[in-house]
Design a protein around this nucleic acid. Structure first.
Lengths: 212, 212
DNA sequence: CCCCGCAATCTTACGACGTAAATTTAACGC
DNA sequence: GCGTTAAATTTACGTCGTAAGATTGCGGGG
């Protein structure tokens, strides 16, 4: 990456290289630090060159998001629908957290061959387990949106130590917020991974009510 | 709003007026259309004037988000914890959807007196219903993050008719995606409000497993 | 082998953005 | 009235996305 070329030598980029470099840059410098000029520099190329691989910056970000979703390998189909959903949620979260830089820009699930396969596979498992098709779709949409929101919030929260941080919360009025203070003191709710697992289990437990 | 003044006449703004005008502008023109100059114009003032009410644009957006959360009046404490959670989720979603313009920027819950009250109240109801404190916190965090993610995705999805739209999905390969096509044909999963309610019920159902 | 068309890359330029610095103007206590 | 302070403006700078056009390398048909 970013090798210097002789005068007039070609860089030989591909769209995938551009998108991957953009993901790296966003992870290092944040969304605001993702610049056409900066991305060009990282690839050893002028900014305008990038417009041969991407029509504009919005499309660049869209491509990055697509790449993120595509990187989540579809969970192996599991006849146990609970295990299938657990695996799907876990894998999707892991893929999303691999590139926290663009997560703030992921406000909707991307539609790619990979995600379509994941949905189709999920529908097959769920309907096979007795869920009506409409319910199965609601289940998958609900779970996907939850994973998205949770992952985005995880990277959003961790960066700050202003309002909301444990030390900040510890200075609250103990008359008014006794339970919050007790929670902070006991260190509850600070483990993102544990909270995620808790939530997934709750959702699966709730979905079970539609299956008998 | 935006009344023209005589030369040298004062505008007499307040921070709240600035934030509310910013919310309006973001709703009309999107996040990219939210500009210091544009916001100034809407208030009948030069861009630099806004810096007397807000240190920079990032703080402006933060203030808008805070205002959004504060506008969600805390749900009336309900001894029935299920009803309490239902009301909380519904009210928060309604408040968030009232200003779709900044929702893409809401990647984490804001910490304000209003939200602290909501959390404390929720903890009181849940612990009163027999939940351990740590579990109660997980329940509230899970529900809040879900509402955030769902609301953000709702406004993100609705705007597009490219990939992911019903008409686009209808042209998929029927050998490979039979269940997705059947879902589209039956119009399943298109009602955001219904899906939200479904998800909230599922979560509450799952939470119930920790309460007996 | 040459040359020509195409694809990749670079150069230059423009308008809009966020905001620093300095300046002007209005409002208010003494 | 007068100085002080807060509110608003003016001017300016650096950076951004990107339009337009020029330039350079490469591969195939004479």
């Amino acid at each position: 990456m970013s090798l210097k070329r002789q005068r007039g030598e070609r860089a030989g980029l591909t769209r995938e290289q551009v998108l991957d470099a953009a993901l790296e840059l966003a992870d290092e410098s944040g969304l605001a630090g993702l610049t056409m000029r900066g991305l060009g520099a990282r690839l050893g190329v002028e900014a305008m060159t990038l417009y041969h691989y991407v029509p504009n910056k919005e499309a660049l970000v869209d491509g990055m998001v697509e790449r993120l979703f595509t990187a989540a390998q579809p969970a192996a189909p599991d006849p146990d629908w609970r295990a299938h959903l657990r695996g799907y949620a876990h894998d999707l979260r892991t893929a999303l957290l691999r590139h926290p830089g663009i997560l703030p820009a992921v406000v909707r699930p991307a539609v790619t061959p990979a995600t379509l396969d994941a949905v189709e596979g999920g529908l097959r498992t769920l309907t096979g387990a007795g869920f009506p098709l409409g319910t199965a779709l609601d289940v998958l949409n609900t779970l996907t949106l939850f994973v998205l929101g949770h992952a985005a919030a995880e990277v959003g929260i961790s960066a700050s130590d202003g309002p909301g941080s444990p030390t900040w919360l510890a200075s609250l009025d103990r008359e008014r917020y006794p339970l919050i203070l007790e929670s902070v003191r006991s260190g509850a709710g600070t483990d993102d991974t544990a909270r995620f697992a808790f939530a997934v289990e709750a959702l699966i437990g709730g979905f079970s009510l539609h299956n008998r």
